[in-house]
Measured scan of single mutants.
Amino acid sequence: MMAYMNPGPHYSVNALALSGPSVDLMHQAVPYPSAPRKQRRERTTFTRSQLEELEALFAKTQYPDVYAREEVALKINLPESRVQVWFKNRRAKCRQQRQQQKQQQQPPGGQAKARPAKRKAGTSPRPSTDVCPDPLGISDSYSPPLPGPSGSPTTAVATVSIWSPASESPLPEAQRAGLVASGPSLTSAPYAMTYAPASAFCSSPSAYGSPSSYFSGLDPYLSPMVPQLGGPALSPLSGPSVGPSLAQSPTSLSGQSYGAYSPVDSLEFKDPTGTWKFTYNPMDPLDYKDQSAWKFQIL
């Protein structure tokens, strides 16, 4: 009977010793046993002879290597770790002494450095960015050149030099007046198309007034536009458009034309069986010896 009264063996659950049927240790109110408190290391007290050895090595170098620390530790009968900690504390003490010396050398008012006064946003004049500046400075420094007289040679050079070769001289006033084509001369031969040399188009003023001019072949195509416009036809070669000034309004060009419109200028042929003959000019830059190549039959 006494065997049943004795408590059973101890069981360990999660490293906790349980005594038989008792489960009081598993209750929430019972805390787990805490780790033992780490003991504080005792402070090391250095003797005068030990301090002399350490100070002598510190005077040589503030960062001794492990071999120098072990050698000193053997002399003063201390572990190497204590020597390492002593050098660490000695360097910190040396830095603190240097900072105190710097503070003593500075004057009393030198510690508080005078800061520059901050400028207020409204006091300083700042350039306004509302208006974009002129990058080319046209509004201040540029002045347009004065327009020359209508009959000045410089204007003629600016007008005619675009179309004339570089080897030719500017046309005088008398020749510029001949550039304007007359109405009857352009409409006299509506079906004849003559190819003149390129030099005649640039230099010869008579080429624009003769039936064999460069633009005589364009007349049949330009004249039928007159009834559609409801007024006189516009002429690209009329009046002052080739003269001194090219800047004319469309209203000033509306009254200039080749001449009176005639039914002869239409595109319809009077004789459907007729042929169109292209007159060959020996001055043509295209060297075609066979003139029969310039004739064709309209079917």
Rank of each mutant, 00 (worst) to 15 (best):
Y4T: 01
N6K: 07
P9H: 07
S12V: 12
N14Y: 14
L18W: 07
L18N: 00
S19A: 07
P21E: 01
D24A: 15
L25W: 10
L25E: 01
H27V: 15
V30L: 08
Y32K: 03
P33H: 08
E42P: 02
T47H: 09
A56D: 05
K60W: 09
Y63H: 13
A68K: 10
R69N: 15
E71Q: 11
L74R: 11
I76Y: 07
I76N: 15
N77E: 11
R82G: 13
V85I: 08
F87W: 14
F87M: 05
F87V: 13
N89Q: 13
R95F: 14
Q96N: 06
Q100T: 05
K102M: 03
P107D: 04
G109Y: 03
G109P: 10
G110C: 08
R115M: 01
R119P: 04
A121P: 09
P125L: 08
S128P: 10
G137W: 11
G137R: 09
S139N: 04
S139K: 05
Y142K: 10
S143A: 04
P144M: 04
L146A: 03
P147K: 06
P149F: 02
S150D: 02
T154K: 11
T155I: 15
A158N: 02
S161L: 14
S161I: 13
S161R: 09
I162P: 00
W163Q: 01
W163I: 03
S169D: 04
P170G: 07
L171I: 06
E173S: 09
Q175C: 12
R176W: 12
L179D: 01
V180F: 04
S182Y: 14
P184G: 08
T187Y: 10
P190M: 15
P190L: 13
M193R: 09
A200P: 05
F201C: 00
P205K: 09
A207C: 14
G209V: 08
G209S: 06
G217W: 14
P224N: 06
P227T: 08
G230I: 13
G231W: 15
L237D: 01
S245L: 13
L246R: 04
S249F: 12
S249L: 11
S252R: 12
S252Q: 04
L253M: 04
S254K: 06
Q256S: 07
S257M: 11
A260L: 13
P263I: 13
V264D: 01
D265E: 13
D265N: 14
L267V: 07
F269I: 03
K270S: 08
T273C: 04
G274E: 00
W276S: 00
K277A: 00
Y280K: 03
L286H: 02
L286Q: 04
D287A: 14
D287Y: 13
D287R: 14
K289E: 05
D290T: 15
W294S: 00
W294V: 03
K295R: 09
K295P: 00
F296H: 00
F296I: 14
